[in-house]
Design a protein around this nucleic acid. Sequence first.
DNA 1: GTGTTCAGTTAACGGTGTTAAGACGAGGAG
DNA 2: CTCCTCGTCTTAACACCGTTAACTGAACAC
Lengths: 222, 222
Amino acid sequence: MTSKNRSDTVARPTGERRRARRGDGELLREEILHAAEQLLVAEGDKDAVTVRAVAKAVGVSAPSIYLHFADKDELFYFTCRRVFEQFNARLVEALAAEGTVVDRMMRAGRAYVSFGLEHQGQYETLFGSKSQDTIPVEHVASDPGVHAFSLLVALIQAGVDEGELRDDLDVQSAAIAVWSAVHGTVNILLTKRGMEDIFNIPSNEVVIEATLEVILNGLRKK
Amino acid sequence: MTSKNRSDTVARPTGERRRARRGDGELLREEILHAAEQLLVAEGDKDAVTVRAVAKAVGVSAPSIYLHFADKDELFYFTCRRVFEQFNARLVEALAAEGTVVDRMMRAGRAYVSFGLEHQGQYETLFGSKSQDTIPVEHVASDPGVHAFSLLVALIQAGVDEGELRDDLDVQSAAIAVWSAVHGTVNILLTKRGMEDIFNIPSNEVVIEATLEVILNGLRKK
DNA sequence: GTGTTCAGTTAACGGTGTTAAGACGAGGAG
DNA sequence: CTCCTCGTCTTAACACCGTTAACTGAACAC
């Protein structure tokens, strides 16, 4: 009998765990990623999640983490990469859907912002200002986001070719402009703090719609 | 003689310092802020600047910092607030200058982005995703940025009244849209990492001009 | 059974922000 | 001048952090 019941080593969020079998080191890795994701979502910031806390949640000692990840940054990169792939899938879906180019970019923009707001911890880990240092460069090229950005560029190019968008703009720059707008919107809506008490800031939905509408209107051919 | 020469306690960037006189605790405070600013600019990230390093640069022990600041966050808030006031002054200047509403917003946008890029450490400390937790709420209301944002709202309102800008948009939302765009641009240009190797991203100047042009074009009346 | 090797452990290091308690010295009161 | 107060700053220490070195113990091969 080559495969016994091994499910009791996985999905044991707390309490004592049994040592994995010879070739089952990968199981702990999955448990670690799962625990790290839960803690990151709960805290909303990877700096607030300690390696020791992740280890404790899995029911393992802290140095065991380093059997599966080079350091904390790599751990959280892979932790976020999973949800980032869902993120990317939603973007690709919206960008490839039916409708005019502006409609599709509008839907993708909504998906982008709402996803960023719903996954604050992961979003900031991957897109935050300090991700520069924390993300292993060798993974950047295979980032799902690179694919989504390529699709955005292609969609804008198509919009230009079909006469729906202005043809007097550099396509790459236009794509970055769109990305800047949605990225900035996520950032601002995540950090608006007590600003609502000072100004009467509209709801998130209104802000999102307005921002997307303005930038896409600025891109559309007159 | 009520005022002796006290200049030997200030501006002593390194080496031994003399204990301050009875009422001169404020002098050390200024020295601390100055050292913290220098280190922040050098490192580009406040998390990379330790309290002990600031103390050492001033020539004082680490706990002395806490005689003048409640904690590290407050220290760097006040460290950045100074340069932030220059930032704000440049924005106000651009927004209040001559020319059409779009021209003034364009100039203010350029000033915003270039300032953010030139003062990465301070910009991210004040506007970064985690500023939520690190900035004392009681200071937010008096933030210089609040003033600049009010001016932006007023300028957009004026543009609407004068018929230069679209009148079918919520003014507050439009202001946030503009702010999101420039804020996102700063963020992306600061973190673009090895992206240039993958895509052929245009120069910062081209990206800035394109982004501002698109968003303002989207705001302008047809 | 015996040895190997993987999967984990305990102990420890250097560093962090921060606090508690005391030392030192300037300046006012007598 | 002497004494005392009190603001200024120091030394020592705490709890915690990410991370590494050295060790243990169980599962498998033979």
